[in-house]
Design a protein around this nucleic acid. Structure first.
Length: 313
DNA sequence: CTAGGATCCTGTCAGC
DNA sequence: TGCTGACAGGATCCTA
C-alpha cells in the first residue's frame, strides 16, 4: 500500500518523535516480520532517518540500522508515553450517535499523542498492541513504536549500517522520478517494450516510488492508457508521464501524504484524504473531473486499474 | 535478458 | 447463516 509519499510522510513524522531516543527493547510477535538479531538494536539510539524508494531506514548508534518495508498493509504507529497513562477507553463505537461526542474527544486525545502512517485502518486509533502488531519497539522514557501488518508481507530488518546499500532491494532500486532525466526514462521504457506501460512503471528497478495509486494517477495525468505497450510510448509522452509521476507524488507529500489515514472528522465519522486527491483511483462509476466521462475500473498487469476512457489514449 | 503468472498472508465483501 | 471465490495501495520467484 504505502507508496513513496506515505513513507516520506512517515519519515518526517517519526523524526519529530523518536530522533535521539534510545531503544530499550525490541519485541517480536511474528517471526517473519522481524529479520536479524534484535539484540543489536537494543540499547542503541536513533540517529538518522533515510528513505530509499518505499523503504525506510533508521540508522542507530554504533553502526546498526533498521530497514522497514511496509509492503501492502504495513503501518507504523508511534505512541508517546503520555498516552499510556491516560489510554484506558477504547473508541469502539464511534459510529453510534449516542456516544459520538465523547468518542470524538477520546479520539482527538489519541491522535494528539500518536503519529501513524501506512496502510489506513482502525489500528491508527486502536489500543495497541493488537492482533496485527508484529513488532513493538520500546524507547527509554516509555514511547513505543508499533509495526502492524495484516498480511505479513512487510518486515523490519536489523542489519549493520554499512550493509544497507548492499541490501538486494535497495541496491537494485532505480532513481526517483525527480532525479531521472526524461531521456533516461524513455530508454528504460524501451527495455520493456512489450509490457503494458503500467506494469513497467510499477517496476521499482525502472523508476522507484510509484505503486498502484500513483501509477494510475500519473498515467491519467499524462493521458496514457495503462494497457499501451511501453515501447509505443513516445518520447513526448514519456516526458509527460515522468512529470506526472513527480507531480502526483509531490502533491501528495506536500499535503502530508494523500493516502495517510482515514482521518476523524468533527462529527466522529471518518474521511479519506485519498478522495480529495485522486482523479481516477477508486473513482470508478464517478465522472472524470476533466471531461465528465465515467471512470472505469479494469485489470492490467494483475492489478486493479482505473482510467478515464476519454482522457487517456 | 524479458514477460507473465503464481505466491507469500489475513481479512472483507459480494454472491449464492 | 454459512460457504466460496475474488480481491487487496507490493515485490519476488518461477517458468517459458
Amino acid at each position: 500500500m504505502p507508496e513513496l509519499p506515505e513513507v516520506e510522510t512517515i519519515k518526517r513524522g517519526l523524526q519529530g518523535f523518536c530522533l535521539n531516543k534510545k531503544i530499550v527493547r525490541v519485541k517480536s510477535y511474528c517471526d517473519k516480520s522481524l529479520i536479524g538479531p534484535r539484540e543489536i538494536a537494543e540499547g542503541r539510539t536513533v540517529e538518522k532517518f533515510r528513505r530509499f524508494g518505499k523503504a525506510l531506514v533508521v540508522d542507530l548508534s554504533e553502526g546498526v540500522s533498521l530497514m522497514v518495508h511496509l509492503r501492502m498493509t504495513g503501518q507504523l504507529v508511534w505512541v508517546s508515553s503520555s498516552e499510556e497513562e491516560t489510554q484506558q477507553e477504547e473508541p469502539s463505537s464511534i459510529s453510534t450517535s449516542k456516544n459520538a461526542v465523547s468518542n470524538v474527544e477520546i479520539i482527538k486525545n489519541l491522535i494528539k499523542n500518536r503519529f501513524a502512517g501506512g496502510h489506513p485502518s482502525d489500528n491508527f486509533t486502536d489500543k495497541l498492541p493488537n492482533k496485527q502488531t508484529r513488532v513493538e519497539i520500546e524507547f527509554e522514557g516509555g514511547g513505543k513504536l508499533f509495526f502492524n501488518d495484516q498480511r505479513k508481507f512487510g518486515f523490519i530488518k536489523i542489519l549493520p549500517t554499512d550493509e544497507v546499500l548492499q541490501d538486494k532491494f535497495i541496491a537494485s532500486l532505480a532513481p526517483e522520478p525527480w532525479k531521472m532525466e526524461a531521456e533516461d526514462f524513455y530508454q528504460r521504457l524501451q527495455r520493456h517494450k512489450n509490457s503494458p506501460i503500467k506494469a513497467v512503471i510499477l517496476d521499482q528497478k525502472v523508476i522507484c516510488g510509484l505503486g498502484n495509486i500513483y501509477a494510475d494517477e500519473a498515467l491519467f495525468y499524462a493521458g496514457i492508457l495503462p494497457t499501451r505497450k511501453a515501447g509505443e510510448v513516445s518520447k513526448t509522452e514519456a516526458k509527460l508521464l515522468l512529470k506526472g509521476a513527480c507531480e502526483v507524488m509531490e502533491k501528495s507529500i506536500n499535503s502530508g501524504g494523500s493516502t495517510m489515514a482515514t482521518y476523524v472528522k468533527a462529527d466522529g465519522t471518518k474521511g479519506d484524504y485519498l478522495r480529495l486527491f485522486a482523479q481516477v483511483f477508486r473513482r470508478e462509476g464517478e465522472p472524470c473531473n476533466r471531461c465528465g466521462t465515467e471512470i472505469i475500473k479494469t485489470r492490467v498487469a494483475g492489478r486493479g486499474t482505473h482510467i478515464c476512457p476519454r482522457c487517456q489514449k
